[in-house]
Amino acid sequence: MIHDISFGQYYPASSVLHKLDARFKIIMTLVLVVGVFFCNSVCSIALAALFCITMMLLSKIPIPTFLKNLKPLIPIIILTFILNIIYVPGEHVIWSVWKFQLTTEALQTAVFIAFRIVLLVIITSFLTYTTTPTALTSAIEDLLKWLKLFKVDVHSIAMMMSIALRFIPTLIDEINKIINAQKARGADFDSGNVIHKLKALVPVLIPLFISSFRRAYELANAMECRCYNGGEGRTKLKTMQSGLKDYIALGVCLAVVSGFILLNMIKIAGVY
């Protein structure tokens, strides 16, 4: 039933992007995500697209892998496109039917927003594809260190995140096993209406929860046996080291984002 989810999936390769410091990658992603919201002209969107394509080539990850991530978003992109066309007000009417008017402004906004969504997904997937979950969580732990001032246990939160990520594949295996076991006893998951289907999931979820608690108990024992004692006095196999390349990469990102803002002012054929 559930085969493979590409959420947060790391794609192993040895590229410049893979080697960057995860903390910088998180900051760069945030900068670029904010930057994409400033893209309000053909030129700046073209620059963003060009930048993404260059990054894809640099990452040494096959381009179809990125496109796979976009697939589930197609309905959302289409929906926002239609909503924008209908609701964005404008003056230059191209075509009208009954109460509905298609204006250049609406069309422009709709196209821009669709492009922006695609760009956002690609930019965030750079982060998850080129960074291991462990590097990601330790980077988040490091970036949120200041929260310790407010007595937030940052280490435990990061540990919970990495354990959750670690157990996703294990639990998917388990769900498949339970579903098969219930099917073997005559459970029916595929027919009936929505309510019927949801009810059929109860005998899957209950064993899953019970076994997860048992797993948690055993994992806690195993972690204790390996001297886990919270974040205090802990060292790391891979220390996070930022170097010149990380600062250069961040500089490039900032330059690209300022490029977006500057290019917004250039008009091509009367269209922003």
């Binding site: 979950p133 462990t134 990495s162 055993e218 001297c227 060292t235 790391k236 220390t239």
Partner: peptide, 30 residues
């Protein structure tokens, strides 16, 4: 101590990082 179920004693999502978990807890230098 090694337990019965191998899945429930592996903490990290990469083999070498899991092996490093114990020494990391002991505060061994990288």
């Amino acid at each position: 101590m090694i337990f019965q179920n191998p899945d429930n004693q592996i903490v990290a999502s990469i083999v070498e990082e899991d092996v490093a978990f114990g020494p990391e807890n002991l505060g061994v230098p990288p």
